[in-house]
Amino acid sequence: MSLNLRELSQRAQGLAPGHRACAGCGFPVVVRLLFAVARRPLVVVNATGCMEVVTTLYPYSAWPVPYLHNAFENAAATASGVEAAVRALQRRGRLSSPPKVVAIGGDGGTYDIGLQSLSGALERGHEFLYICYNNEAYMNTGIQRSSATPQGARTTTSPVGRVLRGKVQPRKDLTEIVAAHGIPYVAQASISHWADLGRKLQKALEVSGPSFVNVLTPCQPGWDYPPEQLVEVARRAVESRYWPLYEVEGGRYRVTYVPREPVPVRAFLEMQGRFRHLLGDEEAVEALQRWVDANWERLRAREAKDH
């Protein structure tokens, strides 16, 4: 599958202009690519969060496809219902061209409050794609820590104080938890590597059964980087191996991008205000580097077992 950016940009319906996402926000990139690579009509189910709030302010909508917002923790369960309706109506001859159901939620709605709903829908095997636009905290409510927030990051509920210096715990590995469900397709991607992301979304849309793509999607106010550096900050997450790009297809692991000369994690941290307090703390930065390296090695070892 090869993707051509010029071609994609012409095919993309995208979100209608006028949506209220911040300058330097990452999720519109994901939605635009999703529409560009989709070869079937889509129905989108969206968890409560930034994406929903900035695209559906009544009486306006930025969505060029049928769209449903239910609540925060239940996008996957809601998508189960839409998919069940698609099957039932199709079986009774009431629907000629069945659309693909795509659920989209942020990390709060996916890693935390929506995890049970996601797990249930994956286990039941509904034919749908779940996209997590992961900006590593509850951004819509004003930057609170989630289980996707990395260790050391400053949020409003993991502040930097005299005793505690940002988030105490490392982030949860949701991609692995999803892969453990044994669904046909799981991937981790980043908005910086658009061709990789586009290919993964396309595969995920076309596979039969549930699929899941976890996309690193920086948040300008939450991460505190210059708005024009959106793509660069995401690129450094990948180049430092902080956010590895890989897929698990039919249970087989494949790292889809191996940085030729990985940059130190410091290069990723130093672009962002949420890590500013760490930069003078060599020990903390080294600990993060060790964590990044260990994760990477484990992933590569897992991949090697499959090849």
Binding site: V43, V45, L68, N70, A71, E73, N74, A76, A77, T78, A79, S80, G81, V82, E83, A84, A85, V86, A88, L89, Q116, S117, S119, G120, A121, E123, R124
Partner: peptide, 20 residues
């Protein structure tokens, strides 16, 4: 066969919104 009542009714909302 939902994994909770919250999800059961959430799925009902999705299905009903789809016209079922």
């Amino acid at each position: 066969a939902a994994e909770s009542e919250h999800s059961a009714l959430s799925a009902c909302v999705g299905a009903a919104a789809a016209g079922a």
